[in-house]
Amino acid sequence: MSLSLLKSVTAAAVMRNLQGPILEIAGLRKDYGDIEAVRGLDLTLHFGEIFGLLGPNGAGKTSTINMITGLVKPTSGSISLKGIDCIAHVKRIQGDIGVVPDESNLYDELSGFDNLVFCASLYGMRKAVREQRATELLETFSLSDTGKRPFKAYSKGMKRKLTIAAAIMHQPPVLFLDEPTTGIDVESARQIRLLIKSLNRKGTTIMLTTHYLEEAQRLCGRIAFIARGRIVKTGTVDELLGGLRSDHLLHLTVGGQADQLAAMLHQHHPSLRCTEKGTHVVEISSDSPVELHPITAFLSGHGFPVYEARRVEPTLEDVFIAVTGINAGELESREKGGRKR
């Protein structure tokens, strides 16, 4: 075989390997007594992708991650990471994964630096190597100045960043992030999103759960919606949005209560789907182009001026509502409610 052919064959094999599955889940179930937390979940993660698992609180996101990472034993089903059975050989795969839980789980008394060094020691890294890696990561995460401060003195955003750093100390090829930006300030969240992207560019396969649909849209190549323990839809952002792109979507800013006006409009124009989008914003969607004049005339005729009409593109939120029947506001309040428990 010529050298150039060998090179191209090798490159093709590498590409196939990169695009192939790294994590395969089939028929995964978890019951807690009478409660079915996860009900027959099937999922595949490909090498080098950022995969989003989206769903409301109690949908089964954290249970799924806990089963993959070995914190919880599945009731039935199979999970394999890089071809290794994660259920039978959990300790063999744990060296290849990093986990960032929904709440920071480092040691309050230890400094940021010591936390990182300790976490790396759990993966058998030698002292000099782990100290060097901790220094590098503190710098990458802009935490060098606070490296000697105890973890309990960190702000929420800093805690989150250090928890991510701790999860990647051993340079795992797969990283699981459970709600990485929940409850932190805007700037820290932005920094974390940039870090996630940067890690992915360096080859880390990432699976993240979030209830921020916009965040998932920005970060993830593929997304799965999970509701009541089952995956209800999976696809790339384009594939998911594709189904709704044929819709004609308008937002009208009106001088009246949007919920009442939406009902009035739908009654008068039954072909239009009208919903409240804000206190004074009515969303109108239709399979065919929407003629504006009759709508504005109707509303103005009833004493409700129309201030603005804007064509909008469908978002993941619209897809989420369409497939789960749960609206984003409800999703967020469920998440907050869940966290208080």
């Binding site: 990472t69 070995g70 914190l71 300790k91 063999r92 744990q94 060296g95 994964i97 986990v99 839980p101 709440e103 789980n105 480092l106 040691y107 309050d108 976490c119 759990l122 993966y123 058998g124 701790a166």
Partner: peptide, 14 residues
């Protein structure tokens, strides 16, 4: 309670 024990359970240590 502080969930730091989870970190130990997640490590590849028997």
């Amino acid at each position: 309670r502080g969930r730091s024990f989870e970190r130990l359970l997640l490590a590849p240590v028997s």
